[in-house]
Design a protein around this nucleic acid. Structure first.
Lengths: 188, 188
DNA sequence: GTCTATAGGCAGATAGAC
DNA sequence: GTCTATCTGCCTATAGAC
């Protein structure tokens, strides 16, 4: 149920799908859907909550299984690539576009997703720089924000153009610029 | 008429506004709107056409009035910042999110916008590198794609978070990394 | 939990008078 | 060009039977 709705939102947007779409796909009626999610806002909140939980769990998984900072970044970028490969946008990236049309509680949940996401990334960046494995000029927070924006934007623009390599090129370039050992160090 | 519709699409998305919204704002009826734009798709096509024309005219203006490559980039980034300052997304960035729900001709027009946009930017980047004013590792085309994605994404994520400085920080970082003279040169 | 049935509203769109 | 009036369809949502 959430699976079907999630796919629809990530592909078509929150304003681009209906209860009827979800119900048809599941072979049930819209009335049944309303039993589980009284209103579309409830469904939306549930979707963000589950997506966030899964995403942050994946971040924890990366921390647990990957030591190297560069490899952690690579794994992090892969989370986005996996979404895009399924011809979807990041759920919260899509909702960010539709932000002005969303109920308040959904807006707050979207903001919270990005803040937590960027906080985790900033931590990884900070640690990587500490170990002299990653190199960037500004604060870890600013760098994290820049990276999240770039990844979300790369997904956004890649999908219409339909060439997955475009996203990969952007991700590779981010990774390269962070890994190059001499470039930024000289300017600190 | 197009002004009102454009604002609505850039703020709320193509699926997030109606003929009634436009008509109300203008003090006319939806029937009158249908006289000028038979269907929503026609309105959408007209919006993209005008937005693209205006955007590309602005690019021409930059070429005509600014010589320095770095300053051209700065002016280019400012086009995006100006849109965001009005609490809007790039029209085609918004439509890229909703891509899967758009009529075919609108999809084609969105793709065309990005291709022309990136072609212009790649030309500026190439010239700048030629003059040793800009520095990047891959092809001008790849770099242009990366920049467009980053700018679109920065707008996307900045708006919900509501802090314009976030976009500026991302733009500055792009500009800085392109301007630094030593970093990439060593790795060519 | 799922159904049928239906409400009430708004969407995009059209006919025809002025 | 703009209007009134209207259509048809889809949307979210609810009542109540099974």
């Amino acid at each position: 149920m959430l699976d079907v709705a999630e796919e629809l939102v990530q592909r078509r947007g929150f304003n681009g799908f209906s209860y009827a779409d979800v119900a048809r796909e599941l072979g049930i009626t819209t009335a049944s859907l309303h039993y589980h999610f009284a209103g579309k806002e409830d469904l939306g909140k549930a979707l963000i909550a589950r997506y966030s939980a899964r995403f942050f769990a994946a971040l924890g998984e990366i921390e647990a299984s990957v030591e190297d900072s560069t490899q952690r970044l690579r794994a992090y970028f892969n989370l986005y690539a996996d979404v895009l490969r399924k011809d979807r946008l990041c759920l919260c990236g899509m909702l960010a576009a539709e932000f002005r049309t969303l109920p308040e509680l959904m807006q707050a949940a979207v903001i919270s997703f990005f803040e937590t996401n960027e906080k985790w990334l900033a931590k990884v960046l900070d640690a990587g720089r500490e170990q002299n494995a990653l190199h960037f000029s500004g604060s870890p927070t600013d760098e994290a924000r820049m990276i999240v924006g770039s990844l979300e934007g790369a997904m956004l623009v890649t999908r219409p153009l339909g060439d997955m390599r475009r996203f990969q090129a952007a991700a590779d370039q981010l990774l390269t610029s962070l890994s190059l050992s001499r470039q930024m160090a000289e300017h600190r």
